[in-house]
Amino acid sequence: MYAQLVETGTSKLKTLDEMSPEERQFQERINDEIKIEPKNWMPDAYRKTLIRQISQHAHSEIVGMLPEGNWLTRAPTLKRKLQLMAKIQDEAGHGLYLYSAMETLGADRDEEIDKLHDGRAKYSSIFNYPTLNWADMGTVGWLVDGAAIVNQVPLQRTSYGPYARAMIRVCKEESFHQRQGFQILLTMMQEGTDDQKAMVQDSINRFWWPALMMFGPSDEHSPNSAQSMAWKIKRHSNDELRQRFLDQTVPQLELLGCTAPDPDLKYNEETGHYEFGEIDWKEFFDVVKGNGPCNRERIEARRSAIDNGAWVRDAAVAYAAKRQRRAA
């Protein structure tokens, strides 16, 4: 997901009896679905985990602008250009909402962004894949945003107030992203040329597995899940969300008239769910560790934007100081 493999720093879940009175009061508040607000007491590990998760989420939004920005200058019609630009702008906005929520925890945005730029912070693995044809703008909207929405909808009820409120805003704005993406694909499949149809299938072939990987490793390989669930900063297991995504996506795939690059994909009448083949977790961990096709390029793009802008930000600060002096 946008926040994958978030380290909680706790290997074992404490029972209420093992907790200090403060911790216990905190946990009971969470159990009662009362939001934790910035000035409330919270365990240090909760604060740190949230900072990691929210910053990862925010970094993903910001890095996620790049694969789409890659086609913004080549969008084929004025309408598509406007839609794509609005969508990318929303992503920048969502990154900013999330950084803003993160800062209520006492984290510093610039420090967290430095961690992204020097490789200490993670972001979603999906954005390390290249966008190679126009249909990728459709697929990213349909599959990538689709997967993100499945994850983000429950996060609207996450235990930390500012994070939950940021997610409500994000979800409200994101509803058009997935539809926009699907419509790009549907238009080409229904009214496009053979070349355009081939573009769509090629794009789905490349993004299908990476999209399923977005939810993170299976629950038995997610050592931090239990603590995150107890704190309600994660509300469903990775596998549960992946299944939910797949179940809603396969009928849409069929509607497009496209296929998935998975020979094992089939509907199970008994369970009412789709079954799918083995995910290549080696690829996932490689990408997460920095060895995806675009990892270096994405980080370099972000780093150089911020580094090249240093003189601009400095000038703005210098000017503000001058003006304040003059006014005094």
Partner: peptide, 11 residues
């Protein structure tokens, strides 16, 4: 509604 970073008030 949230926060923003800026060099000065008008920004």
């Amino acid at each position: 509604v949230g926060s923003v970073h800026a060099a000065d008030r008008s920004m």
